[in-house]
Design a protein around this nucleic acid. Structure first.
Lengths: 182, 182
DNA sequence: TCCGGCCTTAGCACCAGGTGCTAATCCCCG
DNA sequence: CGGGGATTAGCACCTGGTGCTAAGGCCGGA
């Protein structure tokens, strides 16, 4: 096995089994621990503890964001009752397995949560929506959504959301957001 | 502060901030590291690294299991190209914090994934959709969605989805699902 | 044949964040 | 004033590393 082959396999193995130590890796590849260290260094793969910490923080932030992610994606601008803007990074887990195409409901989730949060009311709910998925979004692309309140009448708000990737429209939606009760 | 008080607070603090070392804990409570160690031991709280590993494994198992959910919810019936039925349990994390009302995009996700999967094609994508959120769904309710293919014409399928809780409609949607290609 | 390079291995000191143990102190109460 | 629980200190040791220096092994070219 050449060095390049080993490094490729090493990267893949660590990807699949993040909780593996250098010692174990060395045994699996039949090389010394030092070689594994060099390989990791050249591949920019952090040490076991670092990898573990990263995963743990993911779990933790997810636990935290039960309730914390009022907005799906990251809220960038907010003019309450008028306009809001958010950005969402797309990842593999948002795609149909293997296809690399982000599933529609993630785009909808970003747009919907933005549309609801732009309304200046704690109890806003989506009533109706009309959507167009203009162009498939691929994993890794950053989706920027802009929500604009276009009309409002006593507790009923029409909000338009347009999402773009690199300036190109990928999704359009019109949401009727209602605030129940007077 | 009595020892019991300190231990109570210690347990709570670690619960809230799992990534805290004994050193930091010692500083916060103004005691020595050894005292913290004794406290942890008597409370059965594992060391930082152990706590981190536990969280990381949670994240990892979650990561593994996502991507597998081609259908959001559980698929109960499937007549490819005609009709499909799924059920989704709603949990606290699907709700706006505190409100107890499930957010629209979870209903949409169930409906959308069902609409896409009822189509007999690997590369089906949502093109357009029209939605009505008829009635708020509360956390803990089981949402049953039925998707019916109502019309189809060369790679374009209209799919109606109706979701109910206890027989009562909560969501209706009409999806245009497209299968790209020839 | 020998030499230069690349790859690999070895060895050592050091690090964080601990465990496990023993030995001192503190401080309060009777 | 003494006794005892609570606290602290000190030391050796552990894992899973980093960073550095030094030494081999092997292969191709002159």
């Amino acid at each position: 096995m050449t060095r390049e082959e080993r490094r490729h396999q090493l990267a893949r193995l660590i990807q699949e089994e993040p909780f593996i130590s250098d010692r174990e890796l060395a045994q699996r590849f039949g090389v010394s621990v030092q070689t594994i260290r060099l390989d990791r260094a050249s591949l920019g793969i952090p040490q076991l503890r670092e990898r573990t910490r990263k995963l743990a923080r993911m779990a933790y932030s997810q636990l935290r964001s039960v309730g914390a992610d009022e907005v799906v994606g990251e809220l960038l601008e907010m003019e309450l009752g008028r306009r809001a803007l958010s950005v969402m990074e797309t990842t593999e887990r948002m795609a149909l397995s293997g296809s690399g195409v982000v599933r529609g409901h993630h785009l909808f989730a970003q747009a919907n949560s933005l549309a609801v949060s732009v309304i200046d009311a704690s109890q806003a709910l989506t009533g109706r929506a009309r959507l167009r998925f203009v162009k498939p979004v691929r994993v890794g692309e950053r989706v920027v959504a802009v929500a604009t309140v276009v009309r409002q009448r006593q507790g009923r708000f029409w909000v338009d959301v347009e999402s773009r990737v690199q300036g190109e429209p990928v999704f359009q939606g019109r949401f009727l957001v209602v605030v129940p009760g007077p």
